[in-house]
Design a protein around this nucleic acid. Structure first.
Lengths: 156, 156
DNA sequence: AACCGATAGATGTATATACATATAAATTAA
DNA sequence: TTAATTTATATGTATATACATCTATCGGTT
């Protein structure tokens, strides 16, 4: 499976776009898939999926504080990810611990284990490096791209 | 589930980005999720998933010619989509027909049925309209965005 | 013609997504 | 204080993704 094709037209074997806005939509979807594929390839070696890695990263953001499932969920990039079941898999691998909150027994609080912290440190280094190697873009361009992506999502 | 949050920082409750390039990566992933969610909501009414819709759209590109599974697969935006099983579901709904190719018995050729053409016409109209309503971007901006996304994927 | 490697597609498995529903605890209202 | 409502999480189901493997067929070689 080639994943280093540059032009969108080559990647999806089509150059029939209604207009530039339509093309941008497809371009965003394709680039997101491309990014996820690059990252997942690195994570695979450590038995982590992209979403499991995201949950570990989010937990790290509050470490050493615990987080409840809801707080993790609202920080996920893909909002309909099923956090309880991602936690299931991380728990089996002993990368996180799950406990019922003392203050509110409905809440499940999640803690990174030392093993979780460790694998996160290693994989983060790997993922950052592979992105640096694959995405060659200066800060000014990236800032411009960010501004345009925010505009895509503007609804008056 | 809110899907009309504009700023990335609000969407993922974080403003800790290593740099603009890192933020752009997250921004691309989030925007792709946002686009898919908007489109899927429209398709749901017609019992189609986003990927089923993509396959129908690809088949339409060659209509009335047939396409084999491999030709559909290489035109998918997400390359590791499992086309035979997406075809399974479309076939059950009688939106496509599957036949073994006469020239090469390994190949399965797929044809849009009139029902498939019909649902594709209706849903395309719906999807295009909802994107027009939600994405307010002029052609010049979109062209700039496309150029930047291609740059993201450039590997010297 | 028989064999061998390559190709096309189908199938199996684990995980994720999207959405509906269930369960338990907390909060509010009666 | 009981009942109703809301909230937090878990669970169930259908589909999709990612990847491995299996089967049938094709094309080339001997």
């Amino acid at each position: 499976m080639y994943i280093c094709i540059v032009k969108l037209e080559e990647a999806i074997k089509s150059s029939k776009f209604r207009n530039e806005v339509h093309k941008a939509g497809l371009n965003i979807l394709y680039t997101a898939w491309w990014l996820k594929t690059i990252m997942s390839r690195e994570l695979k070696e450590y038995g982590l999926t992209h979403e499991q890695y995201n949950v570990l990263r989010i937990l790290k953001g509050k470490y050493p504080d615990q987080m409840c499932v809801r707080d993790v969920a609202c920080r996920m990039i893909e909002k309909s990810s099923n956090v309880p079941r991602i936690i299931d898999r991380l728990e089996v691998k002993k990368l996180v611990k799950r406990n019922t909150s003392a203050e509110d027994k409905r809440e499940t609080v999640i803690t990174l284990t030392p093993a979780g912290l460790n694998i996160l440190a290693i994989t983060t280094e790997k993922v950052n490096r592979v992105l640096e190697e694959n995405v060659e873009m200066d800060e000014a361009c990236a800032a411009q791209l960010n501004a345009l992506l925010e505009r895509v999502r503007i609804k008056e």
